[in-house]
Nucleic acid binder design. Structure first.
Length: 275
DNA sequence: CTTACCGCCTGTCGGC
DNA sequence: TGCCGACAGGCGGTAA
């Protein structure tokens, strides 16, 4: 389930393999819609523009062209994989292949997404800052804006885990990394935001940055089917302390990991290490 | 305004 | 062995 570290790894894969700038020669659409309708005619038009940069912002892959930006969100199970050879417009290579584009003579990127929670959007370049206005801080900028963010968080009534996962405050943190950051900071996920002290937030924001950073270094987390663009699994799932560990013993205190539901999401934590 | 909850989607897994 | 329901979850939409 691609959160920030997984998307970051995909973007690094893409930059490693795709020589930029380059031209997109052809798009193939095996489906008209993913989460939303695909902007097919608009996407075909970027074949006239050079692809200049591939970056990550929040959980989005940002394909920057000369005039337009193509945004790809991987949802739960989205994957861009490399393919070399011929690709038929009427026949997908693998089940759940939905979109593909050709960027070299016979080099393709193929978008595969079993659950189709992902989506692809096209916006004009000058609208990019507008588009991301509703999104919050990148985890690596937390320290710089910490005081302001603590003020915001202490006014909230939601459980801290929900706030941590809310993209309008901090981007890129999903269920896995929220659980792990809260464990690292020693804070129970169900605690209400206004009950936490400034010191708690200090630890939490530091832990969030750390967890995300480590996860990026280890190639992200593969739970079910995340693969990077080279079809490799991540390694950070081996470093999970609480996520998916219900009933197992905490490695630090040997208490049993609990799982509760917070705003509809499974939330594992250690009752002893997290207060 | 904030917060809660549903639905989208398919694959996987546990229970019977 | 096979069927069925629950669950996984990012995020927009809607309701309260």
């Amino acid at each position: 389930m691609p959160e920030l570290p997984e998307v970051e790894n995909v973007v690094r894969n893409l930059n490693d393999k795709i020589p930029l700038p380059t031209n997109i020669k052809n798009w193939i659409f095996w489906r008209k819609n993913l989460r939303y309708d695909l902007p097919i005619s608009q996407l075909r038009k970027v074949t006239e523009q050079k692809l200049l940069k591939i970056e990550r912002r929040a959980k989005y892959i940002v394909f920057e062209f000369e005039r337009d930006i193509v945004l790809s969100h991987l949802g739960m199970t989205g994957q861009w994989r490399f393919h070399q050879g011929s690709v038929a417009p009427n026949l997908a290579l693998q089940k759940h292949d939905h979109v593909a584009f050709c960027y070299g003579d016979d080099h393709w990127l193929i978008y595969q997404d079993p659950r189709r929670f992902g989506y692809i959007e096209l916006i004009e370049k000058h609208n990019i800052s507008n588009y991301f206005e509703k999104y919050g801080l990148e985890p690596f900028d937390l320290n710089q804006y910490k005081q302001e963010l603590i003020k915001t968080f202490r006014k909230l009534k939601t459980p801290i885990k929900a706030a941590l996962m809310n993209q309008k405050y901090i981007v890129g943190v999903g269920n896995i990394y929220a659980a792990e950051a809260l464990y690292m900071a020693g804070i129970r996920p169900q605690r209400s935001c206004h009950s936490l002290t400034a010191k708690d937030y200090d630890r939490l924001f530091l832990a969030t940055e750390k967890v995300i950073e480590q996860a990026i270094e280890m190639g992200g987390s593969t739970i079910l089917n995340y693969r990077n663009s080279n079809n490799e699994e991540g390694g950070f799932q081996k470093k999970h302390f609480v996520y998916g560990k219900e009933g197992q013993l905490c490695v630090k205190c040997h208490d049993r990991i609990k799982n509760i539901v917070i705003t509809g999401r499974a939330s594992c934590y250690c009752p002893t290490c997290q207060k």
